[in-house]
Computed example of a mutant assay.
Amino acid sequence: MVKIRKSDHILEIAYSCVRWFLLVTTTYVYLNYYYSASQSLSLFWSMLAVAILYMATTEVALHFTPIASGFYRTVTRLGVFMDYFSFIAIIALTDGTHSPLLPIAYLVILHASLYWSFRGSMVATGMIIIGYCFIVDLVDGGFRIDDLPRHFFNFAFLLMFGFIGGILVARERKHFVEKGIFENLAKQDYLTGLYNHRSFQEHMREAISSKQPITLMMGDIDYFKQINDRYGHQAGDTVLREIGSLLETSIPSSQGRAFRYGGEEFAIIFYTDSQDKATELYHVFLDKLRAKVFEHGKDAFQVTMSFGAALRDRGQGKSELVAAADKLLYEAKTHGKNQLLWARTEGMK
């Protein structure tokens, strides 16, 4: 699956604007310079109606649906095929390969390369050349000797544009992927797959600066040193990895995010100032943890965790909020473990 970037979304909006411009100009050019009274307009109006319907649907996808949604991906990729068939129809209606709108072919190639890189660029180039030949045969009356130099250079420029453009887009895509890998290495914990301490600090700073309501929960694995001493560090790594996975699957990204704070300690930022809502999400994770049985050779064991949680007060800074949650975690660890403590509330088993 091709990942949709913000820059791709902006390009799609730009393509949509270009489509509306070409729709108006093509209609004007055709009706004023190429249409004759002996021709029927029924086919033209039908194609225009289909184009307007698709473009209106595209506007809905671009401005009112999430970028990651299936509807968005389907509509935007369908645009490449719609652009291609529209290009063939426009050229056929405006004097074939003599059409002043022939450069639209380059926009189709660029659009295909946006999603399918070099391969998409070359396939689109090939399809345009096939369509070009079809137009020559249907509209121009076949390949004439006098027109061969013009056709040759049109083919040559299409191939060069598709090839060079495809390479440039492929290089940009590779750079984007590599950049994403390095960013993930800098922000993610290699063992658990969760975001790391650095990312935690960044998320806290962003949430507080944007005045987003948040609740911070700090958690620590009980008796983790004994697990390492008895079963070995590989078993300890397995525990950390599984807890990271349980946190990741228990907390929807729209409602919070889990981090490996350091060692056997984890942090959870909930995007809410409701203690009940944060506790509800905590219990989703807790139920999964209680059902989890770890195996090491012939031995089997379970783990518990202690938590401290604090709702962010208005005006409270990042350091103060972390200190408050961490203090409650310490109290939970020293007063029985396997519990969650809230500020000014009793522990909840």
Rank of each mutant, 00 (worst) to 15 (best):
F285E: 00
A68H: 15
V50P: 03
F259G: 00
F301T: 02
T192E: 06
V322A: 08
T26D: 08
D95C: 07
V303L: 01
Q316E: 15
E183T: 13
K337Y: 01
D8K: 01
R344M: 07
L22E: 03
L101W: 06
I164H: 06
I128E: 05
K349W: 09
A89R: 03
I164M: 09
T125M: 00
Y15I: 06
I227R: 02
H283K: 14
L240T: 00
S99P: 04
F71Y: 11
A291W: 05
H203L: 15
L185M: 11
E242N: 07
V293W: 07
R205C: 10
I10C: 10
T27K: 01
I221K: 00
V29T: 13
R5N: 15
G79S: 06
L311T: 08
T249A: 12
G262C: 01
F21W: 06
D237W: 12
G166W: 04
G262Y: 02
M305I: 04
Y330A: 01
V108H: 04
S42L: 14
I104M: 09
A112T: 02
P213F: 05
D299R: 02
Y231H: 09
R173T: 08
L321F: 03
L328A: 04
T249I: 11
Y261H: 05
A332V: 03
F134N: 11
K337N: 03
H111Y: 11
D313V: 09
R119P: 02
L341V: 10
G141I: 14
L185I: 11
S86Y: 08
A92R: 12
I67L: 13
E331G: 08
M348K: 09
F44G: 06
E280W: 09
K288D: 01
H9L: 15
Y34H: 12
E264I: 05
G219D: 00
L41A: 10
P100A: 11
D326F: 00
L138N: 13
N154D: 14
V18Y: 05
V136G: 08
R241H: 09
L11M: 07
I10W: 14
G166H: 04
E295F: 07
D220N: 03
F85T: 10
L341G: 00
T192S: 12
Q316Y: 01
L328S: 04
L53R: 12
A300Q: 13
D220S: 04
F161Y: 10
D313S: 14
I4P: 06
T57W: 15
F224Q: 00
V60W: 15
R150Y: 09
K298F: 10
